Amino acid sequence: VTLFVALYDYEARTEDDLSAHKGEKFQILNSSEGDWWEARSLTTGETGYIPSNYVAPV
């Protein structure tokens, strides 16, 4: 399991995006899409895309 933590708040801009709150942890499901990674929030269980530069490894 690849875990990352949000460094900043991010507000989803499309229905495919996933909002993130600073300190929230995510499981990365797919990081092969360049700057946008598919992730699952460990807080809400929701999945979507987050900007890779907004997260760091735990």
Rank of each mutant, 00 (worst) to 15 (best):
W37K: 02
S19V: 06
F26V: 04
L29A: 05
S32D: 11
I28G: 02
R13Q: 14
E38Y: 15
G48S: 00
A20S: 05
F26Y: 04
L7H: 02
G34T: 12
L18V: 07
E24W: 04
N53F: 11
T14K: 12
I28R: 02
D17G: 15
S32H: 11
R40N: 02
F4A: 10
N53T: 10
I50L: 12
D17N: 09
D16Q: 14
V58E: 09
L7K: 03
S41M: 03
N53V: 09
W36E: 04
E46R: 15
V55Q: 00
A20F: 15
E46L: 14
D35I: 10
A56I: 12
N53G: 10
W36G: 03
V55R: 00
Y54F: 12
S52W: 10
T43H: 10
T43K: 10
D9R: 01
D35L: 12
P57T: 05
G23I: 00
V58A: 09
E24I: 03
I50W: 02
P51C: 12
D16K: 15
P51E: 03
L42V: 09
E46G: 07
L29Y: 06
E11D: 09
H21L: 09
R40W: 05
G23N: 04
I28S: 00
S52L: 05
L42S: 03
D17C: 15
L29Q: 04
E38R: 12
I50G: 00
P57D: 04
G45M: 06
L3P: 06
P51M: 06
E38M: 15
Y10R: 03
T14C: 15
L3D: 08
T43Q: 09
F4T: 05
T14F: 14
I50S: 01
V1M: 13
Y49M: 13
T43E: 14
D16N: 14
V1T: 13
S31N: 12
G23K: 01
I50H: 01
Y8D: 08
A56L: 07
L42F: 05
W36F: 12
V58D: 08
K25R: 12
D17A: 13
Y8G: 06
A56K: 09
D35Y: 13
S41K: 07
F26A: 00
L29S: 04
Y10T: 02
D9L: 05
W36L: 11
I28E: 00
I50Q: 00
Y54K: 08
A20P: 02
Y54G: 08
T14L: 09
G34F: 08
L3H: 09
E24F: 03
E15C: 15
V5H: 05
G48W: 05
D9M: 04
S31K: 13
Y10V: 06
E24Q: 05
S41G: 01
A56P: 03
S52M: 09
A20R: 01
R40D: 00
G48K: 02
Y49G: 03
E24V: 03
W36Q: 07
R40A: 04
P51S: 06
A56V: 13
E33K: 14
H21I: 11
P57V: 08
W37E: 00
A56S: 09
N53R: 13
S31F: 15
W36N: 06
L18M: 10
S41F: 03
T14W: 12
A56R: 09
E15A: 13
A12M: 04
K22S: 06
V55W: 03
R13H: 10
N53L: 09
K25Y: 15
A20C: 14
L7Q: 04
E11N: 08
A56G: 09
R13I: 10
E38L: 15
